[in-house]
């Protein structure tokens, strides 16, 4: 039993069994992270490259640690310090990495579909570390893992994803992932930040925060970026925060003990109040811990099993 495809490009491509397998494997991996000496030889002699065209702390670091905990050699490329600034195309960068013997490339890119282009170009495994507004599958996997750890079965839960749905790859991956695991998914944000077709993707749509929160066991807040205000999608951060920000008062509308999640980095006082972020209901830090475990599981399932 393993993953069907060479690459992980989206949650869309995974079936429920594959998601279960990744989450089950990730649980095992978490035991390694808890050890005093966090090192297993599973991926010795394998090479992982992180190729990031956009800034990232969490995703890049957790992939790097995931590789290192399993003894893979890890190389980080940030495009500001690479041939990309000399105008090298993604195709040529991919071919170069291929010739150097890379086994897995994790790519983050500002343009949707860039991981697909890379996956067509190289024989190495490609993991999508976030592409444009398309998907961020490993974020969704770590979110699912966090929910499962805290609440058990995901099926039947009401999950509300709140904020800038239009520009959020996390929202898309989570709508797909949560639906596949049987949750009822709501998306909520101002109409200017709501893309068409969310209902067709299986989500319920509302512009009212209260409706999204009512009875929700999982509340996912999304980061709002100031540049969206500049492009006229909402009037001010202050008004946004008033309508869609989560504070302790509004959190009471959700199911008692509902999980509060955020992919980070958070804007305290904008989409989420400091009290909520630091409350017992917030699992933002648990998400980070699950992030390393899920990425270890993926690397193991892609590389570690091939009859060595």
């Amino acid at each position: 039993m393993g993953l069907r495809a060479k690459d992980l490009l989206s949650m869309e491509q995974l079936d429920k069994d594959e998601i279960d397998l990744i989450l089950y494997t990730a649980k095992e991996m978490k035991n390694i992270i808890r050890r005093d000496i966090k090192k297993v030889p599973t991926l010795r002699g394998k090479t992982l490259v992180t190729l990031f065209y956009e800034p990232s702390t969490r995703t890049r670091t957790s992939f790097e640690l995931a590789g290192k905990y399993m003894s893979a050699d890890v190389v980080n490329i940030s495009t500001a310090a690479s041939s990309v600034v000399k105008g090298e195309s993604l195709k040529d960068t991919g071919l170069t990495l291929e010739m150097m013997g890379t086994d897995v490339v994790v790519i983050r890119h500002g343009m949707a579909g860039a991981p697909h282009l890379l996956a067509r170009t190289v024989k190495a495994h490609v993991i999508n570390g976030g592409d444009g507004f398309h998907e961020h599958p490993t974020q969704s996997l770590l979110d699912l893992m966090t929910i499962r750890e805290k609440l058990g079965d995901i099926a039947g839960l009401k999950a509300a994803i709140i904020g800038d749905i239009l520009h959020s790859r996390v929202a898309r991956s989570n709508v797909v992932g949560l639906k596949k695991m049987g949750a009822e998914v709501w998306v909520c944000g101002p109409p200017t930040l709501m893309p068409p077709g969310m209902e067709e993707m299986g989500a319920r749509v509302t512009y009212e925060l209260e409706e999204a929160l009512r009875g929700a066991q999982v509340v996912m807040m999304l980061r709002i970026q100031l540049e969206r205000q500049k492009s006229g999608l909402f009037p001010t951060l202050r008004e946004y925060s008033r309508l869609y920000g989560l504070d302790m008062e509004k959190l009471k509308i959700a199911s008692p003990g509902a999980l509060v999640m955020h992919p980070g980095p958070i804007n305290r006082g904008v989409e989420i109040s400091a009290e909520v972020a630091d409350s017992l209901q917030s699992v933002i830090n648990e998400q980070v811990a699950c992030g390393v475990a899920v990425r270890m599981a993926l690397l193991y399932l892609m590389l570690g099993q091939k009859g060595e």
Partner: peptide
């Protein structure tokens, strides 16, 4: 084109 597929694919419609 802006519609279901632009949302699924994360491309600006």
């Amino acid at each position: 084109h802006e519609g279901y597929w632009s949302t699924v694919l994360g491309l600006k419609g």
